[in-house]
Amino acid sequence: MGTLAAGFRLQLRFYRSYPDLLVPLLTAPLYGVVFTLVMRDGHRPDLVGSASLAPFYMSLWWFALFSGGWIIQTDRWEGTLEHLVSAPAAFAAVVLGRISATLLPAGFAFTETWVFARYVLDAPVTIRHWTVFLASFTVTLFAMAATALLMAALFVLARNAVTFSNSASFPFYVLGGILVPVAVLPGWLQPFTRPVFLSWSADLLRAAVAPGPVPHPALGLGAIAVLGVAAGLAGGVVLSHILRRLRTRGELAIT
């Protein structure tokens, strides 16, 4: 627990020292304005609510990709990874603690996005199904943390991780049904959206603010949880593999 807390505190201190890591909190309202105006101008009032909340998922993904995903690789560049690995504390616990801290700004991003959508953009985002909303929000944050762990490990292995992370934003916004519901996407694309936990999360959030019953909430929650567990397990396996590989090759530090 002490190691998790130390990692958590470290990440919060990084947010204080590197405010640029929190840039999605600045851009979220701006994206909200753009997406809402596009839907209103396109005479799609049915999509205004989901479009106004889309910046939350964009922020969430951004934190997973850039804040969580680069944790290990940055430590390699800084020469701190050797010290982390040679410490008695479990390295995975440090990483998990730091990734957990990324959930805080992600949670704040939702509050910011919702308040802006509700009171500035006057979008129909009143939460009507609190249980579904809270459950989906919780498992979504868990899945995001697990995905960040997987990416943090993969980015060490991938030679072109920078290119991937820089270009992986909008494709996932589309596949995650963030801007428009998955049902609106072309038929051939829809199967690719299901392995992306964001697509289930976005569906549930839309349903939680819509009138009428929520269709198949257990299925959606289960899918997010399963995808999160799978990402977490894969992240653990890859993390263990890369540590062994870096120790074998003498590549814990990048000089």
């Binding site: 470290l10 201190r13 990084f14 020292s17 590197y18 800084e78 020469g79 701190t80 050797e82 010290h83 530090a253």
Partner: peptide, 9 residues
């Protein structure tokens, strides 16, 4: 060496 510390902390 110079590296191995969190310099903004």
């Amino acid at each position: 060496g110079d590296r191995g510390l969190y310099t903004r902390l």
